[in-house]
């Protein structure tokens, strides 16, 4: 309801911005992978997609400081 993620005032909010905006393409790729396998999900089923997503997040978070 309230667009709080736009003002990144807490670490979690900054993280939220990165997870939904900065790394949106990687998030979408990961989401699509889960969507394709969600009837039979096991650990690391989308490992590769998440590795890229995670790398993007770490990169974005480190740029905050």
């Amino acid at each position: 309801m309230n667009a709080t993620t736009t003002n990144g005032s807490t670490p979690l909010r900054r993280f939220a911005v990165h997870a939904t905006t900065t790394c949106a393409t990687h998030a979408e790729a990961y989401g699509k992978c889960i969507l394709a396998t969600y009837t039979d999900v096991r650990k690391d089923a989308c490992k590769e997609e998440f590795a890229k997503f995670g790398a993007c997040l770490r990169e974005a978070v480190s740029c905050d400081y």
Binding site: A16, A19, E28, L57
Partner: peptide, 9 residues
């Protein structure tokens, strides 16, 4: 982060 991506997808 994974849950947020899955929620949207």
């Amino acid at each position: 982060a994974a849950a947020s991506a899955i929620y949207k997808a």
